[in-house]
Design a protein around this nucleic acid. Sequence first.
DNA 1: CTTGCAATCTGTAGGCGCTACAGAAGCAAG
DNA 2: CTTGCTTCTGTAGCGCCTACAGATTGCAAG
Lengths: 139, 139
Amino acid sequence: MVTIGEAARRSGVGIELIRYYERTGVVAGPERSQSGRRQYQSVEIHALRFIRRCRDLGFSLAEAKSLLGLASSERLACADAQSLGQHHLENIRTKISDLQQMETAMVQLMRPCDAGKQECSMLDTLLEGPESEWPPQDK
Amino acid sequence: MVTIGEAARRSGVGIELIRYYERTGVVAGPERSQSGRRQYQSVEIHALRFIRRCRDLGFSLAEAKSLLGLASSERLACADAQSLGQHHLENIRTKISDLQQMETAMVQLMRPCDAGKQECSMLDTLLEGPESEWPPQDK
DNA sequence: CTTGCAATCTGTAGGCGCTACAGAAGCAAG
DNA sequence: CTTGCTTCTGTAGCGCCTACAGATTGCAAG
């Protein structure tokens, strides 16, 4: 039975964010004192920490909420969790690959620019660059 | 002198998004016909394509706008563009590194789960897992 | 010329995941 | 009692779109 400030400290989720999670139904609201203040028990603090860990791993709030539901359910939810996790892992790998392509393109874009020429090839490439047509007709 | 629809097709920026960019000052608004319709010239279409390329490379709208300003300016802006680009490249690399850490953590999290046990170690780890305290007192 | 549909116009609201603030109320110590 | 911290609710803002409503236009076929 601790205050929201203490729950924030113990879960690693900021006070405003805790209230936001409650408001949007990511976690259930805790009991209230007579004066209306939130009173957290350890199960609720664990839930908050659970959500934070999911967010740190890049899960969306909706996914985090689903996972929390699975973790709190009676039945064996391992397969469901696996499936969500695999899906998410694929998303992460897609993002990494996209960013690596960006990185390559950026390096390419900036490479010939180190000599102070008349015109900036970086800006010129962005302005006039290759393959201007759209939408891509393949695929 | 083409319509917004044609400008969208040629720049690869959707109609609604073009209007959004105009509204928020990312690009200047084009001339209007007597009846109030936007009329795009090639310089404006180039600007839109420029912004799209920047966005594809992960630049923020603010950065894209700055770069467009540099590209449109009289003076030699290569150094400024380089600096923005380097900064952005670092951001990309940081994001890649963060995502790679996420990936490792996800793989770790899901690894022992492939045998159908009594409890799901993935969910258990998220619930009870190691190093629960917060905030991190280092740094 | 009229009908009808497509394109465009403005304005507004929603989505995600927060973050920040205002103004009121409670609580604990000096 | 007063000071000062915490908490409360509600609301608005961020970045970057996306989508829709409802009102005009533009253009082509009948």
